[in-house]
Every structure is written in C-alpha cells, then in structure tokens.
C-alpha cells in the first residue's frame, strides 16, 4: 500500500513544513503556559481573597469551555470588538490560556502539599511573604508539579492540531490539505500519527531530562 515516491515527494515535504509550524505553536505555548500556570497557581493559593477569586474564575472558565470554542472566539469573535488576531498569534494565545489554566491546578496541588512549617521557618528568619514564595515555596512546588505539567505538555502537542481549524496550517492542517487533494487519507494520516508520536516521545524524553536535572533527594522518584 505504501508508495515510497508519494511519501518522499509529497507527504514528507508538506508534513515537514507543517511539523515546523506545529513546533512553533507548541514550544512558546508550553513555556508560557507553564510560566503563567505557576503564577496563577500561586495566586490561587497565596493571593489576596479578590485575587484568588479572579484566578479561580479564570481557571474555571478556561478549563470549562472547549478549546475549539475559545479559539473561535479569539479568531472569529474578537474582530467584532475591533481586535484582529492573525491565525498564529490567536492559536498561541488560546493554547497558553488553556494550558495555564490546567497547569495552575497541578501547581495548586503541589503548593498545598508543602509543609506549613517551612513557611513559618522562612518567616521566622525574616523573609517577606514574597521572598518566602520565590525562594522556598515555588522552587519546591514546581518540582512537585513537573510530572503533572509534563502531562499537560503532551496534551498540548496533540491539541495544537486544533490550530488548523482557525486556518493556522500546522501538521494536521497540511495533512488535511494533502489528503483532500490526493484522496490518500490512510497513508497521510498514518504518517501524521507517527509524527505526533515522535513529538510526544521527544517531549517526554526532554521532560524526563528536566526532572533529572531538578531532582533533589526526597522529591519524587528516586534517581535510577
């Protein structure tokens, strides 16, 4: 069934272009999604009551509304109030907002697992609340949240395919175009599946490296 010429001449070139666009969607979304997720998670646990309410509302909204609907609102809805976003920034923005909402939940769980006594110890040494958060709480919480946030990166790799719906043609978008032109859906989408599997494998490996890099005795799995 596999036609090598078709794969080499048609499938790989167009999918490679799509792969590059996917990477450009995924990397900034993962980085800023994690960063904002940490900030929102910290606010949800340690913020002033009104800040906690706002951050909780944010999380409830962006976890509660389908990502596709959010992307439609960003791309098709915002022009009604005079905000025009190109497909790429609209997609990245949507992914960051969604990813941050999920990550904030992992971070919140991690923050709640840190023993209160360490906060007392920091305060007793004269740390301000902000210094306690930055030097004591967040470094530990991020380590504890890392496996969960890695899970979110894996999800992100796959839901980045939704970008094609708002005309940001990435891996899935290129595949859809190519398959529609050639009617060779099986080959094209099997290769796309393999590409995503490759992306997820690389991401998992990197996340593992990251966990090793930040490993500290007493946190998470023992080092092999």
């Amino acid at each position: 069934m596999f036609d090598v010429d078709f794969l080499v001449d048609r499938v790989f070139p167009s999918l490679n272009a799509g792969l590059w666009m996917s990477v450009k969607l995924i990397v900034p979304s993962a980085v800023f999604g994690l960063l904002f997720g940490v900030i929102i998670g910290v606010v949800r646990v340690f913020g002033k009551p009104w800040m906690q309410r706002a951050a909780n509302a944010y999380t409830a909204t962006f976890r509660g509304v389908p990502l596709l609907v959010q992307l439609f609102i960003l791309y098709f809805g915002l022009p009604n109030i005079g905000i025009y976003l190109e497909p790429y920034p609209a997609s990245v923005l949507g992914f960051i907002l969604c990813s941050a909402a999920y990550n904030s939940e992992y971070v919140r769980g991690a923050l709640l697992s840190i023993r209160q006594g360490q906060l007392s110890a920091a305060q007793a040494l004269g740390f301000s609340t902000m210094q306690t958060l930055m030097s004591i709480v967040v470094p530990q919480a991020v380590r504890r949240a890392l496996p969960g946030c890695g899970n979110e990166v894996v999800y992100l790799i796959k839901y980045s395919s939704l970008a094609y719906v708002i005309t940001c043609i990435e891996l899935t978008g290129e595949a859809k175009v190519l398959a529609s032109r050639t009617f060779r859906f099986t080959e094209v989408f099997l290769v796309v599946g393999a590409y995503y599997l490759f992306l997820v494998t690389v991401a998992s490996w990197l996340l593992h490296k990251l966990e090793d890099r930040f490993h500290i005795p007493g946190f998470g799995r023992p080092r092999q």
């Binding site: 023993r115 006594g117 007392s120 110890a121 040494l125 004269g126 946190f219």
Partner: peptide, 16 residues
Amino acid sequence: RQQVGMIFQDFNLFDH
C-alpha cells in the same frame, strides 16, 4: 524577626 532565632519541634528545614 531576623534578631530572634527560632527552632521548631519538627525542624522545618527547607526540603529543596
């Protein structure tokens, strides 16, 4: 607080 040291029953070292 900087001038008053405190020692806790369960140590409260910074785990990281």
